[in-house]
Nucleic acid binder design. Structure first.
Length: 584
DNA sequence: CGGACAAGCTGA
DNA sequence: CAGCTTGTCCGG
């Protein structure tokens, strides 16, 4: 008899079934099965075997064995994640299961014995990494030390090649390597295979990973890969917010992988040019040499705009010179559309919505309210003038203005655009930094928007943006231009001096004073039934809010926070809980 | 989630 | 009071 968790998000509950004799050799903890439940057949996972039957319940047999599922250790890990991110277990088991049915692990041949290391013990490197180019000059000491610790945060400059760390992990045995995006994972995988490593892509090579003898590479989901004997974990760019699942439960891939490493007692290495404060609290910080770090950040040109003529708009003299230089430049502005804020050129009044009073933005020829979406023709609601001036330009508007300044065509990239423009000058939102590479320079037109946004992680996120830009311009070879009215902000100081530690110190003090992470932990509770849930939380947690329909719950650590969240009955479907919200 | 069943609303 | 909608309950 086995206990089965149905793959139905709303049923976070197990049911017992009989195992027919002919299935018994295929059924163990993790196996994916089909079961009859309440008059229908649903998928589910065996989460316990050899269950003693509860008296007085007539059991149904398993309807079918579908195939391989996550190993027992991962089933257990899913239980932990359900607690840690206050979500149903089924979500995590789904994340850990193969996309297509796996009937046998055969056909996933193990790699040649020469590459199967992982006998444990000291730290011999495997086949020496063939260094192409000069970016693999980390000293061996740093790598050795990283894997000698259980939890290391290795701060490397933005242009550092993570491959040496990945190879070192692979030399220890079956390693798990996480990257923020699937594209980065695919690239890394190709390079590992070129190096002669047996490597499996998550989630495509699920069965190969389960068979063992490979290093598994993937995005955040790879944290759930069925590696039989884990030897090490590496998270590349561990600061990246892409590790966090956007949908609830919003689990974090590298936190899951780190928990796995902890459970198995193997090293976990988080690489980042700008480690988060939370990661620094989690692990021991190791840094590249000062000289190496300084050499790996580009030159950062901070343009102090405090005394510039406001009529020069988003374009300082240095910016104009840069875009006219003929070099490949991306101008970054995190505002989509043409104009996000307008004023009447005649009476000076702001363009606002007639219905709700919120700011109206330019949309085609007319205006649209940014809050309620009401559209109206482009004229002043107060005096009727048709002349409106742009107070806050968006990307599309900047494209037009830069084309006039450069005298050539300028491309545009936002999250929605699909084609990559081939013009030397490109304007875009942050998305442009993920889509372009090998630029000569990146210019942040209004960096204050990043620095001053009212979110407690704003500074860290702003530095991460600069690190991202630094990588896109190829480290030291490129340039970053930053227009700001806060030129002495710690974020800019840290980037200019290639010393993220400067931000760490300032930010830690601020967070401690305000009782914010990493000194505390937060969860966001929202939705129609949030008040009910918040009201029934135990007094071990602090409640803050509401802000609209959002509440913040604060506790000294995850054990208290998650226990508190788990202790209250959840009104189904009507409340959303986000543990460790990225923005707040 | 999705079926079962009860309670409430409507119209003839 | 049939016929339909809406809400609540519960699953082996």
């Amino acid at each position: 008899m086995v206990r089965v968790l149905p793959d139905v998000a709303a049923i976070d509950r197990c049911f017992d079934y009989l195992v027919p004799d002919e299935m018994s050799d295929q059924v163990r903890v993790g196996t994916i099965v089909r079961v009859a439940l309440h008059g229908r057949r649903v998928r589910g996972w065996v989460v316990e075997d050899d269950v003693t039957p509860a008296p007085g319940v007539r059991l149904q047999p398993l309807a079918k064995v579908t195939g391989w599922g996550p190993p027992a250790a991962i089933v257990d890990l899913a239980g932990w994640a359900a607690w840690r991110w206050a979500g149903p277990r089924a979500t995590f088991l789904r994340a850990a299961s193969p996309r297509r049915r796996v009937v046998s692990l055969m056909g996933a041949p193990p790699p040649p014995p020469s590459l199967r290391s992982g006998q444990g013990g000291s730290f011999p490197y495997g086949p020496p990494a063939v260094s192409a180019g000069g970016s693999t000059n980390h000293n061996q000491e740093l790598i050795g030390e990283a894997f000698a610790n259980e939890r290391s945060v290795v701060r490397v400059p933005p242009d550092a090649d993570p491959l040496v760390f990945v190879s070192a992990a692979a030399s220890l045995g079956d390693a798990l390597v996480l990257t923020p995006s699937a594209a980065q994972a695919a690239h890394l995988l190709r390079r590992l295979r070129r190096e002669g490593r047996a490597a499996a892509a998550w989630p495509h090579d699920w069965a190969r990973a389960a068979a063992g003898g490979v290093v598994v590479v993937g995005g955040r989901g790879a944290a759930w890969a069925p590696v039989p004997t884990l030897a090490a974990v590496v998270a590349i760019d561990a600061h990246d917010e892409a590790y966090q699942e956007e949908r609830t439960p919003s689990w974090n891939g590298w936190h899951v992988a780190a928990e796995r490493a902890r459970r198995d007692g193997v090293p976990c290495v988080a690489l980042s040019p700008c480690p988060t404060l939370e990661s620094l609290r989690w692990g021991r910080l190791l840094t590249a040499s000062r000289a190496r770090e300084r050499a790996g950040w580009p030159s950062i040109d901070v343009v102090d705009r405090r005394n510039d003529d406001p009529r020069s708009g988003l374009y300082s003299e240095r910016l104009v010179k840069l875009v006219r230089s003929g070099r490949r430049v991306a101008c970054i502005l995190n505002r989509k559309g043409r104009a996000r804020l307008l004023a009447c050129a005649a009476c000076g009044g702001l363009a606002r919505c007639e219905r709700c009073g919120a700011a109206a933005e330019q949309l085609g020829e007319g205006l649209r309210c940014r809050a309620c979406g009401l559209e109206r023709p482009s004229l002043c609601a107060v005096c009727g003038s048709q002349r409106l001036k742009v107070l806050r330009a968006g990307v599309s508007r900047v494209v037009e203005e830069l084309e006039a300044l450069v005298g050539a065509s300028v491309g545009e990239i936002t999250g929605q655009t699909t084609a990559t423009p081939d013009t030397p000058v490109v304007v875009g939102t942050e998305a442009a930094l993920h889509r372009l590479d090998e630029l000569d320079a990146v210019a942040f037109l209004d960096f204050d928007q990043e620095l001053l946004v009212p979110r407690f992680r704003a500074s860290e996120q702003a530095l991460a943006l600069l690190a991202r830009a630094a990588r896109v311009v190829g480290g030291r070879r490129g340039n970053i231009l930053v227009q700001t009215r806060v030129p002495d902000h710690e974020v800019l100081e840290a980037a200019v001096h290639a010393d993220p530690g400067r931000l760490t110190i300032a930010e830690l003090a601020r967070r401690e004073a305000l009782g914010l992470p990493p000194y505390t932990v937060l969860a966001e509770v929202s939705g129609p039934d949030a008040p009910t849930m918040v009201a029934s939380l135990p007094s071990s947690v602090e409640r803050m809010g509401p802000d609209g329909d959002r509440w913040l719950v604060r506790a000294p650590d995850h054990s208290i926070l998650c226990d508190a969240l788990a202790s209250v009955a959840r009104p189904r479907g009507r409340v959303r809980v986000v543990v460790d919200p990225a923005r707040s």
